[in-house]
Write a protein that binds this DNA or RNA. Structure first.
Lengths: 215, 215
DNA sequence: AGGAGTTTGTGAACGGAAGAACAAAACGAG
DNA sequence: CTCGTTTTGTTCTTCCGTTCACAAACTCCT
């Protein structure tokens, strides 16, 4: 389930506040979901609550972390150290949430040997060697769109089976490889869409006239 | 619909290639969706295709752009010019897809007057003035998690009605304000979840034993 | 010990999205 | 002009996720 990481984060906050127990209602309001949905999500993992009491925060947090698979660290490579790649390399949230950036790769020679976030930027051709040496199964693509498919192909060939893609392209990968896409423009466009609807509730009138022009 | 921007991008590629007409099947494979679903999405906008022929690429592209609301530019403010804010400010994709970054704000005085992507970083307290002057309705939050809710409150009070939030927090906003969240760690955790399932198909055995420990 | 008050876990109803399938419409060939 | 081919627009069915509602279970107070 895609909501497990959200619960995990909320539980971590509760742990830091020293709260030992919480009800499904508490967690639901903290994460912005329906409490029945939350209970059903959790019950899918097993029966970790106590009726009349709630959930043990620490224990539930560990169970969710184990279910997601972030009880141990996952090695990650980042390809494309431009503005975005730089930001990702410096993002401390990865480290604290079960991921370890083991290498930064870039095709441009002028970036090589530069130090970013305490790591040296290495040639893209080192990909296969690094993936094999560190048993990397997760790759992050932060290159321009034109390079993304090539990078993905090389990653898959090297043994990467999960890809987080920031390039604005649809990647095609073989069966068994997972791809998740983060597209900043698309997020803004979705907001613009709703924004437009707020501004002009009856904006549909434009359609008919435009249709007539064509017809 | 959240898929409209994807279609828009694919159509832009087709325009650049000089392709004048395409079928729903073409667009579907290019965007990775089912062709029936695509046709249903498009028919929701109006009847813009020709049976036996397909869709006029240029015309359809314009119609989708108009539906999304990106035929004219939307002014956007970015708050929090750290690593990520920097990358966002420099991202050229916003400009070419209907968005114009009008201001960069940061609470830290040592960042003020610094030039980022051709814009001066200004104090966060200038928010209200800028939002009013430029009629900004979309704000981007790239601050640390602890500051995000305060920034959101100020944005909403100033008149912003759509927020793109990169901080790993659940924002609470009044009715009528849209929030979209981009959380990098969550994306990686979802990949890790699937990755774990690939590695150990019967990892569920662990549950029962752990339950016994508690019980 | 028993009853009142909570809270979980889940069965059942609901809604909406996704895919299959087909009729209507346009084009081109003969 | 008619027939066959292509492709859209739409209907119908299926399925999945969400929500409601309630019984089971646990705690606390008397």
């Amino acid at each position: 389930m895609a909501r497990l990481p959200i619960y995990l984060r909320a539980l971590t906050v509760l742990v830091e506040r020293g709260i030992g127990t919480c009800s499904s209602e508490d967690l639901a309001t903290a994460t912005g979901v329906n409490s029945a949905k939350l209970r059903k999500d959790l019950s899918y993992l097993g029966s970790y609550g106590t009726r009349g009491v709630g959930y043990d925060v620490d224990y539930l947090r560990y169970q969710i972390a184990r279910e997601i698979g972030v009880t141990q660290d996952w090695p990650v490579v980042i390809v494309g150290i431009g503005n975005l790649g730089n930001a990702l390399a410096n993002y401390s949230g990865f480290r604290s949430r079960g991921f370890r950036v083991v290498a930064l790769l870039d095709a441009a020679p002028e970036r090589h040997d530069e130090a970013v976030a305490g790591l040296e930027v290495r040639p893209f051709d080192d990909l296969e060697e690094i993936v094999a040496a560190e048993s990397v199964s997760i790759g992050v693509i932060a290159t321009p769109a034109v390079a993304a498919q090539d990078v993905a192909d090389r990653m898959v060939a090297a043994g990467v089976t999960s890809i987080l893609n920031f390039a604005p392209t649809v990647l095609s990968v073989p069966e068994g490889v997972d791809v998740r896409k983060v597209d900043l423009s698309i997020e803004l466009q979705i907001l613009a869409y709703h924004e437009q609807r707020k501004a002009a509730p009856d904006a549909d009138l434009g359609h008919a006239t435009d249709q007539e022009v064509i017809a």
